[in-house]
Amino acid sequence: MGVYRIAVFASGEGSNFQALAEAANAGKLGGAEIALLVCDKPSAPVVGRAERLGIPAFLFKPKDYDSREAYEREIVEKLEAHGVDLVVLAGYMRLLTHVIVEKYAGRLINIHPSLLPAFPGKDAIGQALAYGVKVSGVTVHFVDEGMDTGPIIAQAAIPIASGETSESFAEAVHAVERELYPEVVSWFAQGRVKLEGRQVTVSNF
């Protein structure tokens, strides 16, 4: 059995990408390694992170293609060429089409800064604060063709303090993300995740 290989899709700073890479280097990713970065913004800071870590990257500009399906077909070719077992979305700011969602069904995950199904979509932190909830958090879920609607794999709750700002709560959320996402990826690498309908179970060895 070969090394479990993941591809990380990111569009921005790449803090979760960095956390995953550091976990892999420390042997805390269940034996997984990052085989490829996929980025739709060639000038994004995450690209520099990948270069410094020696991780290959596929960079593209969506406007250079006729459709989302067109560039996703090329992405799938790159994923297959790198022998990718799991696709990990980490701040990738584009909705995926059936081209990737169907090809990697059950092997495609995302992290979202709320306790889904509450506050899907953009600015989940701002939504939670505006609504006045006392607890929000982080969700790792499978990706389907909806907006943050796939089966939930893991969640972590974070209390919202009185006087919390979007900036301060975002820091708390990102700190939890950097811990939870590598842990969940390690479960996949160890073959511990089972999906039946909407129910996800994680076995203990």
Rank of each mutant, 00 (worst) to 15 (best):
R52T: 15
R192K: 15
G121E: 09
A26F: 00
T165G: 01
R198Q: 12
S114A: 15
S166Y: 03
E179I: 12
E69L: 07
R49A: 08
A35P: 02
V84K: 06
I158N: 07
E80I: 14
A157H: 01
A90D: 03
A81R: 15
N110H: 01
G163S: 04
K63M: 08
K78M: 12
L20K: 07
E171W: 00
A170N: 05
P56G: 00
F119W: 11
F58D: 05
E102T: 05
M1Q: 08
V88T: 13
N110S: 02
E171H: 06
G132E: 04
A128M: 08
E145R: 13
Y71W: 15
M1L: 07
V176Q: 11
I153P: 07
F188V: 13
H82M: 11
E164C: 01
N110F: 02
G14T: 02
Q199C: 08
Y181D: 10
L96A: 09
A90Q: 03
H98T: 09
A189I: 13
Q199S: 14
S136M: 12
L180M: 11
V101A: 03
I153N: 07
M1K: 13
A105G: 09
T97C: 03
Y104A: 06
E196R: 15
A124W: 01
M147I: 15
G121P: 12
A118W: 00
E69C: 04
A19I: 10
E167N: 00
P120N: 10
P45D: 01
R73E: 15
G31P: 09
F17L: 12
G27M: 08
I75E: 02
G146I: 13
A105H: 10
G163W: 03
L59R: 14
G83M: 06
L20A: 13
A124T: 10
A19T: 12
V173P: 04
A44S: 05
L195A: 12
V3D: 09
N204W: 08
S166D: 06
K122Y: 09
I125S: 05
V176K: 15
F60M: 11
G31N: 07
Y104Q: 09
V3K: 14
A124G: 15
P113Q: 05
E74C: 05
S15W: 01
P62I: 09
L108S: 05
V193K: 07
L37R: 00
R107F: 01
G83D: 11
F119L: 08
D64I: 08
G197F: 10
L115Q: 00
N16K: 01
G126H: 06
S166V: 07
Q199M: 12
G14P: 00
V140L: 13
G126K: 05
I160C: 05
L37Q: 00
S203E: 11
A156D: 09
D64A: 15
A170P: 01
L36I: 04
A156E: 15
F58M: 09
Y71P: 10
D144M: 11
G2C: 03
F188N: 12
I75S: 00
A10T: 04
A154E: 09
G126Y: 04
Y181R: 04
G31E: 05
P182E: 11
N25G: 14
V202R: 08
A172T: 01
L29T: 14
V184H: 13
V99A: 02
G2T: 13
P151L: 11
G83T: 10
Y65K: 07
C39N: 00
Q127N: 14
L195K: 15
C39S: 02
D85C: 05
D148P: 13
I55Y: 06
E171N: 04
A175I: 01
H112A: 10
A175P: 00
